[in-house]
Write a protein that binds this DNA or RNA. Sequence first.
DNA 1: TGTACATCAGTGAACGCGCGTTCACTGATGTAC
DNA 2: TGTACATCAGTGAACGCGCGTTCACTGATGTAC
Lengths: 246, 246
Amino acid sequence: MSVNRRAHILGATGGVPVGSGGSDDVPRERRSQAERRLQTRRALLDAALEQLEAGVGFDSLSLRQVARVAGVVPAAFYRHFAGMDELGLALVDESVLTLRAMLRQAREDQAQRADPGHVIARSVAILVRHVREHRRHFAFLAHARASGNAVLRQAIRAETKLFASELATDLARFPILREWTTPDLQMLAGVFVDQMIAAIDSILEASSWGPGPLTLTPESQAEITARTEKQLRLIALGIPHWRSRP
Amino acid sequence: MSVNRRAHILGATGGVPVGSGGSDDVPRERRSQAERRLQTRRALLDAALEQLEAGVGFDSLSLRQVARVAGVVPAAFYRHFAGMDELGLALVDESVLTLRAMLRQAREDQAQRADPGHVIARSVAILVRHVREHRRHFAFLAHARASGNAVLRQAIRAETKLFASELATDLARFPILREWTTPDLQMLAGVFVDQMIAAIDSILEASSWGPGPLTLTPESQAEITARTEKQLRLIALGIPHWRSRP
DNA sequence: TGTACATCAGTGAACGCGCGTTCACTGATGTAC
DNA sequence: TGTACATCAGTGAACGCGCGTTCACTGATGTAC
């Protein structure tokens, strides 16, 4: 993996595009200061995500390394974030948008086809696809969730609770759950979210086999999908027999 | 938190106990080399656990800091471990013993009273008690499980799978599960383990409110216990309606 | 349109610090006689 | 029991390194006239 390949995408000094017909993949047209500012910010976020995806923990991420991969001098970092914590919170914001998009898509998919028999299979498929398409965000959330950084950990836990609440609201629309109390719906949403987190962990683990000896045979994506569907179906089987009383 | 309070518990130089009637809490009797060696090793492990418990991630743990808290010079660390990874693996071994002890206790408790109605409540109680009594080990596992250290992560994942398999074996003894296929039992054990992990996270989170602004109201231990019991009961409700076919 | 000045994203050098690792050493514990 | 030597856990000094943060700076972009 080249660590420095983004180096100087913005031009050599003072942020000016150098040369005339560079062979870089970045267009050389004139850009406003605001555009260039956004571009550097993005490069910093991407540099962090890139290393996070490669298995580096957020705690061990260094400001200098992030700046280096982003092709910028360390001091320039401070023009965008007060420190790594602030960058981390920006990543939480981004990642939460991804989560919400996933929930929204599942909701719309659900609304389109009134075919309640396949809700679980379709939801799992959407989950798996989203995790694969937004690996970096999910890898960040999965790791920073348990990281040593209290600020990030707290932020992610808070967002997870919010996510569970939104899911509870969605669940309330199912006829069979209409009579359930709000706390019971929250409890049920909690079970689903816990299983979802476990599934995300499995997917990330299965698709991130870097160097080193494999002591565990990684599960295939199909296996994870099948197992997760089974688990959710088992849980769903209990629902009709739950007596939800205030 | 005093970082240095263990300093020189073993004596000042060459490992010789200094003074004659020290006021330290460590007895000054003559000790064999082997005993002193074990004692320092333990001090190193404890120093690491202490910081892990305080919220420091394993990734950010420094060899020098661990040695300092253990009251030993950095170079002495290498008399016991080749590096932090090896210390981490030793902690995995220890923590896994704690996990097994918990499972064994739940099993014995189960065997003593043939009162199947309270299996869940009693199991949750045992879980909660163990997590509180062995906070440091569980905090280590919960964090290093998602840490940036691939070696530790792998080791813990492997042990988690093993744990789930043992649980599956225990589950097979329940009359209602006697007809289930092995893969289905594994799947069910997986659900329980996932919920257990989530519960452990909650307990650790609830009881580790260090400094900093509280944006989330921490759940009380009673709330966590009640919620976990509910979740497991819901899952159990589905069991009789699952058709397990080869 | 042309000119003079302001803004500000990114630069490059410098700082002090804690880190992991190495090394020859010390001196109490352990052992052979 | 007494003596001479071996073992080896822990010492302390040293090393080079990457880190986060600061600072005055540069020079292209943006703006007022």
